[in-house]
Computed example of a mutant assay.
Amino acid sequence: MEIRAATVLPARREPIELHTADDLTLVGELALPADRPPVATLVTLHPLPTHGGFMDSHLYKKAANRLPALADLAVLRFNTRGTSSERGTSGGAFDRGEGERYDVAAALEYAEFHDLPKVWVVGWSFGTELALKWAHDPLVQGAILLSPPLHRATDDDLDAWAAFGRPLTALVPEFDDYLRPEEARKRFARVPQAEVVGVDGAKHLWVGEPYVRIVLDEIVKRVNPAAYPLPTEV
């Protein structure tokens, strides 16, 4: 069977709640391999909720639908404060990336408390800003940034990640609306351990199955290289 956009592969999928230090409840889902423990974990941070971003944004939904089965990964998705999806609405209200520090911390605390292995943070657009600003946690193995705009995240945040020392990969679309590969390489040069991967033909939202496959492959290449490249049929 060819893996297509709507393919959902077997996994254990559990509704979860996260509890923040400022007393909010956030809704989410944890997807795990169906019959074995995960070898690593993706904590996903979604795009801007005021522009339609949420835990079901298509790259993350497809990651949860495929990667537990294809790459033995746990995929944790959740709605940041004030964000809604089919799973429900998280408490609180959008706070322009500031109060969301507690949301990131709650997701990482959940992963730690539940003994999820080798945690990598994956941010997309607004989620990359949250990763750069708030994911400096000893639990975090590294971060993968999809379409980083570098709006809210400043040079100071990049310098802080450089000092943090964990791997950082930025996947930057050739035709991104906010930051394109050449400029991204200049901005991320402040982070010695950063790798910028330009993706020919891609746009900010990674629409189209070929680009979804590139993104998921690049994630797996770093998080569980033994499963790279991902199969296109099962």
Rank of each mutant, 00 (worst) to 15 (best):
residue 220 V to T: 02
residue 132 L to Y: 06
residue 52 G to K: 14
residue 191 V to T: 01
residue 29 E to N: 04
residue 2 E to F: 08
residue 94 F to W: 15
residue 192 P to N: 07
residue 71 A to L: 10
residue 165 G to Q: 09
residue 163 A to S: 14
residue 55 M to L: 15
residue 34 A to I: 01
residue 101 R to C: 05
residue 35 D to T: 09
residue 219 I to K: 05
residue 26 L to S: 04
residue 97 G to L: 06
residue 72 D to F: 00
residue 180 R to I: 00
residue 99 G to H: 07
residue 110 Y to T: 06
residue 126 F to R: 02
residue 218 E to Q: 15
residue 145 L to G: 05
residue 155 D to T: 03
residue 36 R to A: 12
residue 206 W to P: 00
residue 39 V to G: 01
residue 75 V to T: 05
residue 129 E to S: 15
residue 21 A to E: 11
residue 115 D to E: 12
residue 10 P to Y: 08
residue 137 D to N: 12
residue 172 V to K: 01
residue 143 A to C: 06
residue 210 P to I: 08
residue 138 P to Y: 04
residue 33 P to S: 09
residue 20 T to L: 07
residue 70 L to R: 01
residue 90 S to H: 08
residue 87 R to N: 05
residue 220 V to G: 02
residue 57 S to A: 05
residue 142 G to C: 10
residue 91 G to N: 04
residue 30 L to V: 07
residue 64 A to W: 08
residue 210 P to F: 12
residue 44 T to K: 03
residue 216 L to H: 14
residue 134 W to K: 00
residue 83 T to A: 03
residue 109 E to T: 09
residue 68 P to K: 04
residue 3 I to W: 05
residue 17 E to A: 11
residue 159 D to G: 04
residue 9 L to T: 06
residue 229 P to T: 03
residue 100 E to C: 07
residue 172 V to F: 01
residue 134 W to E: 05
residue 46 H to T: 01
residue 150 L to F: 11
residue 182 E to C: 03
residue 70 L to A: 10
residue 220 V to R: 01
residue 43 V to W: 00
residue 117 P to T: 11
residue 49 P to R: 00
residue 189 A to V: 11
residue 160 A to G: 10
residue 49 P to Y: 03
residue 29 E to A: 10
residue 225 P to D: 00
residue 99 G to M: 13
residue 199 V to R: 04
residue 72 D to Q: 14
residue 66 R to H: 11
residue 122 V to T: 00
residue 125 S to R: 03
residue 141 Q to D: 10
residue 190 R to Y: 13
residue 177 D to R: 14
residue 108 L to K: 04
residue 64 A to F: 04
residue 76 L to V: 13
residue 206 W to I: 03
residue 7 T to E: 13
residue 134 W to M: 04
residue 73 L to D: 08
residue 91 G to S: 04
residue 34 A to H: 02
residue 26 L to G: 02
residue 200 D to E: 15
residue 231 P to T: 12
residue 215 V to P: 00
residue 158 L to Q: 12
residue 52 G to C: 12
residue 194 A to D: 05
residue 159 D to C: 08
residue 61 K to N: 07
residue 105 A to M: 08
residue 22 D to Y: 02
residue 80 T to A: 12
residue 71 A to F: 09
residue 89 T to I: 12
residue 49 P to V: 05
residue 112 E to L: 06
residue 83 T to D: 11
residue 67 L to T: 08
residue 194 A to W: 07
residue 216 L to Y: 09
residue 45 L to Q: 03
residue 14 E to S: 11
residue 65 N to I: 13
residue 89 T to C: 07
residue 73 L to A: 13
residue 200 D to L: 00
residue 19 H to E: 12
residue 178 Y to M: 13
residue 201 G to A: 10
residue 140 V to L: 08
residue 218 E to V: 06
